[in-house]
């Protein structure tokens, strides 16, 4: 997957776990928590969905990389380079 495809994949996950949120104006540079009502269980949902959908493992010590869309895509890019679209 290319970075833009990873971003779309994360957006799809967010649409499922935060269905009441408007994601159309999400600022990739800003923290998710500053823009969306996400709590720790939601971040665990992101981790779980990445595992289920793409078999990507995000170890607990790396959770801080999921802070914003930008950092998430940057973190996932090497992990998902071989994941088919």
């Amino acid at each position: 997957m290319a970075p833009e495809e990873i971003r779309s994949a994360v957006i799809e996950i967010l649409e499922d776990i935060a269905p009441d949120e408007d994601l159309s104006n999400l600022d990739d540079a800003q923290a998710f928590r500053d823009q969306l009502e996400l709590d720790s269980m939601d971040f665990l949902d992101i981790v779980m969905e990445l595992r289920k959908r793409y078999r990507v493992q995000v170890p607990e010590e790396d959770y801080n990389h999921l802070n914003s869309m930008g950092s998430t895509v940057e973190y996932l890019t090497p992990k998902m380079v071989d994941v088919a679209v």
Binding site: D16, I17, A18, P19, D20, E37, M41
Partner: peptide, 8 residues
């Protein structure tokens, strides 16, 4: 109830 709370 929000959709999120219903899902959770």
């Amino acid at each position: 109830q929000t959709r999120k709370d219903a899902r959770r």
